[in-house]
């Protein structure tokens, strides 16, 4: 769990992640959604101790398995990544060194984690996640395998250490749709078998609906809405979340309403980050940054929407 996490990259005006708090119990899946640049990856990297050395990280609490990691050194983080934290990256082809065979890299990872003797088990697991003929295909170089195959290897290597926290940063967005749903099914199955906490990043709400227990919506580095999956997807309060939901094509509605577009990187210096695009914007929004307040079943950072929802009920 983390509390009040803020990450700033050098040279950037505003933090990439600002004041984010979250907690994932083991056995549950938290989905983080938000558009490109909203700070999803930065948040995930911070949780695995993988931020760039130049990035500045502040938080009031940062714990995994009850261990306080605020002052953890790089060595400790590395140890954790060998035993307790796994990370699956967005682009399968970029997650592997292009000039070394898969088997060599998988072996490196296994022996780093102290599981050098468990290769047969890994090959089994690979077979189970649909990686056929692992002995032979692993001798290939990354570019000789498909994205789906590579992502299966990433997943197998990630779960074999039985981590306490599994982070998957858009694990399917680089894949085509049939492979996407295969990979999601694998992740869901492995999650249900193992007793781990999972953080999955996505900007695809259908993915979120399939795998998440809880949902967190990021905008401009800030949490704008947070709550149980059904609540956030079903009765969202924050105008951004609602816009996001409305922009998804659905069978029961005949048109989709796209979000008003905005030039990237244009975020207000103060107040609600969503203000320039918001239909409900009032003067107060530009003054103070809205706090997360409980509204219905979710937490939303939007006082105007909150009060109108409360009045309506």
């Amino acid at each position: 769990m983390v509390e009040d996490l803020t990450v700033t990259y050098p040279g950037a005006g505003r933090p990439a992640v600002k004041g984010v708090s979250l907690e994932i119990e083991s056995g549950r899946t938290l989905a983080v959604v938000g558009e490109s640049g909203s700070g999803k990856t930065t948040l995930a990297l911070a949780l695995a101790g993988l931020l760039d050395r130049r990035a500045r990280r502040r938080a009031s609490r940062l714990e995994i398995n009850g261990e306080n990691l605020l002052a953890a050194r790089r060595r400790r983080w590395r140890q954790l990544r060998r035993t307790d934290i796994s990370f699956i990256f967005q682009s399968p082809i970029n997650s592997w060194n292009p000039t070394r065979t898969m088997i060599a890299q998988v072996r490196d990872a296994m022996s780093a984690a102290g599981h050098a003797g468990r290769m047969p088990e890994l090959l089994d697991l690979l077979g189970r996640v649909g990686f056929e003929d692992p002995e032979r295909r692993l001798a290939d170089l990354p570019h000789q395998l498909s994205g789906g195959m590579l992502q299966r290897v990433s997943i197998a290597v990630a779960v074999i250490i039985e981590p306490a926290l599994l982070i998957a940063d858009e694990p399917t967005s680089a894949l085509d749709s049939t492979v996407q749903s295969e990979i999601l099914a694998i992740l869901a199955e492995l999650r249900s078998e193992a007793d781990l906490a999972m953080l999955i990043i996505s900007h695809d709400l259908s993915v979120v609906a399939r795998v998440a227990d809880d949902v967190m919506v990021l905008y401009g580095g800030k949490v704008v809405e947070q709550g149980a999956q059904a609540a956030v997807l079903g009765s969202a309060v924050h105008p951004y979340t609602r816009g996001l939901l409305d922009s998804v094509p659905r069978l029961d509605r005949d048109r989709k309403t796209p979000l008003p577009s905005m030039e990237p990187g244009h975020l207000p210096a103060a107040g609600c980050p969503f203000a320039p695009r918001c239909r409900l914007v009032v003067d107060d929004c530009r003054r103070a940054e809205p706090e997360l307040i409980p509204v219905d079943a979710t937490l939303a950072a939007c006082p105007p929407a909150a009060s109108s929802t409360l009045i309506a009920t």
Binding site: R78, F89, N97
Partner: peptide, 26 residues
């Protein structure tokens, strides 16, 4: 700066292996 370096670190590889084996060779 490449992503595979970060991915190798994420798998718990030591800095030595990441830099001197993976990145340096390329």
């Amino acid at each position: 700066d490449r992503e595979y370096v970060r991915a190798a670190r994420a798998r718990g590889l030591s800095e030595w292996r990441v830099v001197m084996v993976d990145a340096l060779r390329n």
